[in-house]
Design a protein around this nucleic acid. Sequence first.
DNA 1: CATGAATGAGCTTTCATTCAT
DNA 2: GATGAATGAAAGCTCATTCAT
Lengths: 212, 212, 212, 212
Amino acid sequence: MSNRKREILDVAIKLFNEKGCINTSTRHIADDLGISVGNLYYYFKNKEEIIIYIYQTFMDEVSTRITLLKDDDIAFDYYEFLIDQMDFELNYRFIRLEMNNIISKYPSVKEAFQKGIQIKLKQMKNLFLHQIKYGYIKEIEDIELEFIISNSWIIITQWEIFWIINNIKDERVRREKGVLNLLYFMKPYLTTKGLENSNLLTSIKYLEKGTK
Amino acid sequence: MSNRKREILDVAIKLFNEKGCINTSTRHIADDLGISVGNLYYYFKNKEEIIIYIYQTFMDEVSTRITLLKDDDIAFDYYEFLIDQMDFELNYRFIRLEMNNIISKYPSVKEAFQKGIQIKLKQMKNLFLHQIKYGYIKEIEDIELEFIISNSWIIITQWEIFWIINNIKDERVRREKGVLNLLYFMKPYLTTKGLENSNLLTSIKYLEKGTK
Amino acid sequence: MSNRKREILDVAIKLFNEKGCINTSTRHIADDLGISVGNLYYYFKNKEEIIIYIYQTFMDEVSTRITLLKDDDIAFDYYEFLIDQMDFELNYRFIRLEMNNIISKYPSVKEAFQKGIQIKLKQMKNLFLHQIKYGYIKEIEDIELEFIISNSWIIITQWEIFWIINNIKDERVRREKGVLNLLYFMKPYLTTKGLENSNLLTSIKYLEKGTK
Amino acid sequence: MSNRKREILDVAIKLFNEKGCINTSTRHIADDLGISVGNLYYYFKNKEEIIIYIYQTFMDEVSTRITLLKDDDIAFDYYEFLIDQMDFELNYRFIRLEMNNIISKYPSVKEAFQKGIQIKLKQMKNLFLHQIKYGYIKEIEDIELEFIISNSWIIITQWEIFWIINNIKDERVRREKGVLNLLYFMKPYLTTKGLENSNLLTSIKYLEKGTK
DNA sequence: CATGAATGAGCTTTCATTCAT
DNA sequence: GATGAATGAAAGCTCATTCAT
């Protein structure tokens, strides 16, 4: 990918996160970069394509970040995973926050989202099954597991709007709250072994100090 | 409130839910009602005010719907409450789905949202404390309770986007999935007494049949 | 139709004829009239609609101009009909001259054109049949008649481009040449009775003087 | 002319005929050929020049195609001439169909057209005079001949728009109709000798079968 | 010869809002 | 109360053309 294309995407991501994707015009992006609109359209055939490229970048980064769990008796590292994950997701906040508006305005983006979500859900299921197998997470019936996973997805992607409305203005603080949201969500599903051997509880304690 | 004002709000709500708030123009609302744009602006000074009024209507209805729990030893009626609650929330879906865009475009709406969320959270907390007091829900430390409640809010308000992206096209089916999301979310917090005496488990079973 | 709507159409017709329909932007029209573009779009939902309205106006005027031939033994008045017809057609020159470009850019205009042409062809056929019946025009086989009529249409609608390229700059002179094109085209089909009793030959003579 | 220049013209002609000259961008031409826009502008200083070159190519081919009638007593071969002529004109349809737009957008193209038309008219006149001399076509006064020739030009160049609007979608069928337009146009001017000795009538019969 | 990045003006269209009547 | 004409800014996008390399 050419440098300029990268630059456009970077500026677009920045502005989308700052002001919202819907509220950011192609001219805004061009102006911010100091190029002409025509030039922007030389690299991308329309705004939809910009969004799709951003989403692909996002998904690519997601893939490289996957904690590949080998089939070993090892507890999941909640802290590292979540801090890392959410930190990086902040760079693409607009995707979660404006998902519905984006979908209804740019239909082909919806397809990209649908593919992306399938991958995420599979990864999450594998993670759960692994932790169940080695006794870190309690046995769960399959149908319940499906809903636990969808609840995880909802919390992972939608926590931020809650803290925005609750007027937490510091992005970093928000993110820590978001991590706590997920840690507390997971807590009841852990076995005694899970609570004793994973870093879930210590992570909670560590983050709660920071939050105060 | 004058009849006309009410009519405008009703049409606005209808269109916002159908096509999205951002995609619905003031002219569109006026046309649908069969009045002039000028007249619409006689009743509301701008689009922002319409949204705020809708949100107030929404909050008012929320209040009247509150299951006022007396201080009695009685299990919470999950089924009736959630079905009723979510059914009614469908009438204001756009608020949840476009929350972020609305906030960033109409800053004064944010304040209304902030007030509204405080009320909701207080209600939810009372409910939890009541059920804990009578042994239907496990004892929970205060800080954990805060996050359980924020997680509840996130799931209650944000479940729909998950099922939309997962291509569940029937609104009714989506809503039932949403109810299941919350029921499964609550399940681990219930005591044995809670599981035996509340209708949470039977509600789950009942809804799972329908969903298939 | 409101005055403003009429004004917009009039300015549009003027500019379309002067600079071409394709080369005239909606902003040109608005500027020429001294109104805002927004206002123009208040009256017409898009440029296509403007064109269709113009074409309808055109066809309506065509209808009122139809020489309704009763079933009497009377020679067709070439002069009055053609001078009148072509004079008025000058006001809508762009339709003939840019037909192909308009059709390919505004598909729904094509349908309007198609309907219009059918009416025209029917009228022309009736006229021929009437003149044949009373011996002013020679007997013609049906299939030949079809092609004579299509040739008439081609000449009636497309003569102007010939005289433009041949550098006849005066619109009035061009029109007289156009009339002569059609008179000469008709000439071979007239019977002796036709030549003696209609004003075709005298019209030719009259116009030729003017042209020189 | 360099090969590359030729290639550009060929692609331009192809695209102009397919999608219209006005609707074909320089970038489109370059892409179709697989060269850069910059390179295209190395060979032609602007789009206008491309059109002029195409028109010159067109006129050159016209010249080579001229049936040079020697001063012999021989009937004109309508069929071969017209099929050949119109077949080849299909390759430059856009010139006839968009003539007016092209002229008003690219004024210097107009001059080229003007020169071209003069040549054509002269050829046609020679042809008529030759056939009159040997009694195939009736005697015609000079001024009438001028108009017959201009009518021929109009029909030869403008027939297609009629059949396009009449929804004849097959190019080949359209062309045959166009040939018939001209054959029928010529018919009344032929003498008995002309009708008996030329292939005009047989051509008509032959083509009418195909058209049905 | 050839590339392809860059420009800037222009296009059609939408929309919240105002205001004279 | 009610109308609806009017505004002007802004949106997404296209295109002929230029120019450094």
